[in-house]
Amino acid sequence: MIDMQDKTTHFGFKEVPAADKEKLVGKVFTSVAGKYDLMNDLMSGGVHRLWKRHFVAASGIREGQRVLDLAGGTGDIAQLLMPRLGESGHVIIGDINQAMLEVGQDRMIDAGFFGRFEIQQMNAEALPLEDNSIDAVTMAFGLRNVTDKQQALNEMYRVLKPGGKALVLEFSQVNNSLLKQLYQFYSFKILPEIGHWVTNDRDSYQYLVESIEQHPNQETLQQMFEQAGLEMCGYENLSAGIVAIHTGYKL
């Protein structure tokens, strides 16, 4: 785990004290919570919904399982999981940001899932769950915001039951040079302006774009999965590597 007193880390392209990143990220997501899903639709042209549906469809999660959805915030992944989990399944929506959790709780209740889920404010680096207690851990577009990513993966491994599966959907490295140039132009020149127009918060979306650039590429993240103790690790690129699904098992 990162020594918060001595270390620095990146917040977008800025170097900040590691102890400050959690608070800075918290401000970003408190600012955008109410329009987070709308912004995702605008920024991706709705494609994020297809990525998330594929993420859940390919998850192998089954009826009756207990799933932890980390960085679950607005509840979009949890809602997709519910038909797979059935009446006997249960999902814990964990997020470090209370404002995001409140949005997710309201949406899950409105969707008719009362009693089949719970929300819990938690830090991915120190999960308040027992060892070997979860069948699957999912995390969509949240790992890049964690200060100590390796520690978060270590915690996923700890709470998984033997045979359990960790799944991370995250922005990654585009594997086509021309597409990468176009994607970076769109990301740095267009997306922050959309954020300014919709949420009156350009800086938060500038950070989110920069955080994508700082995130480990596919091979590096797979190695981090393996370092956490996960086995049979692999990844699937979507949209030419704009995002990737990483998986690993606790055997």
Score class of each variant (00 low, 15 high):
Met1Ser: 15
Met1Gln: 14
Met1Pro: 15
Met1Gly: 15
Asp3Val: 11
Thr8Asn: 13
Thr9Arg: 04
His10Cys: 12
His10Asp: 13
Phe11Val: 07
Phe11Thr: 13
Gly12Ala: 01
Lys14Arg: 14
Lys14Thr: 11
Glu15Thr: 09
Glu15Ser: 07
Pro17Thr: 04
Ala18Pro: 14
Lys21Asn: 08
Lys21Tyr: 07
Leu24Cys: 05
Leu24Pro: 03
Gly26Leu: 10
Lys27Leu: 11
Val28Pro: 02
Val28Lys: 05
Val28His: 09
Ser31Ile: 08
Val32Tyr: 14
Tyr36Asn: 05
Asp37Met: 00
Leu42Ser: 07
Met43Glu: 08
Gly45His: 11
Arg49Phe: 09
Arg49Thr: 07
Leu50Glu: 12
Trp51Tyr: 05
Lys52Ser: 05
Arg53Gln: 14
Phe55Gln: 02
Phe55Tyr: 06
Val56Thr: 01
Val56Ser: 03
Ala58Ser: 12
Gly60Ala: 01
Gln65Tyr: 09
Arg66Trp: 06
Asp69Gly: 01
Asp69His: 00
Gly72Tyr: 01
Gly73Arg: 01
Gly75Val: 03
Asp76Gly: 02
Ile77Thr: 13
Ala78Pro: 02
Met82Leu: 03
Pro83Cys: 02
Arg84Ala: 14
Arg84Gln: 07
Arg84Glu: 12
Leu85Ala: 01
Glu87Tyr: 00
His90Trp: 11
His90Tyr: 15
Val91Trp: 00
Val91Tyr: 04
Gly94Cys: 04
Ile96Gly: 15
Ile96His: 12
Asn97His: 06
Asn97Met: 07
Glu102Tyr: 12
Glu102His: 13
Glu102Asn: 10
Gly104Val: 02
Asp106Ser: 11
Met108His: 02
Asp110Gly: 12
Ala111Phe: 02
Phe113Thr: 08
Phe114His: 15
Gly115Trp: 01
Arg116Thr: 00
Phe117Lys: 09
Phe117Val: 02
Glu118Phe: 11
Glu118Ile: 11
Ile119Cys: 08
Gln120Phe: 08
Gln120Pro: 08
Ala126Glu: 13
Leu127Phe: 00
Asp131Cys: 10
Asp135Gly: 06
Ala136Lys: 06
Thr138Val: 06
Met139Ala: 03
Phe141Glu: 13
Gly142Leu: 07
Gly142Pro: 01
Leu143Asn: 01
Asn145Lys: 07
Val146Cys: 08
Thr147Ile: 02
Ala152Phe: 10
Asn154Met: 06
Tyr157His: 15
Arg158Asp: 00
Leu160Lys: 03
Leu160Met: 05
Leu160Pro: 04
Leu167Gln: 08
Leu169Trp: 01
Asn175Leu: 07
Asn176Phe: 03
Asn176Ala: 13
Gln181Gly: 11
Tyr183Met: 09
Tyr186Ser: 06
Tyr186Gly: 05
Tyr186Gln: 03
Lys189Cys: 12
Leu191Asp: 00
Leu191His: 02
Ile194Leu: 14
His196Val: 06
Thr199Asp: 13
Tyr205Ser: 04
Tyr207Ala: 12
Leu208His: 05
Val209Trp: 04
Glu210Pro: 04
Glu210Asn: 00
Ser211Phe: 01
Ile212Phe: 04
Pro216Ser: 09
Asn217Thr: 09
Gln218Lys: 03
Glu219Asp: 14
Gln222Tyr: 10
Gln227Leu: 14
Ala228Val: 07
Met232Tyr: 15
Cys233Lys: 03
Gly234Gln: 07
Ser239Asn: 13
Ala240Tyr: 15
Gly241Val: 08
Ile242Ser: 10
Ile242Ala: 08
Val243Ile: 03
Val243Gln: 05
Thr247Met: 12
Thr247Phe: 12
Gly248Met: 03
Leu251Cys: 07
Leu251Val: 11
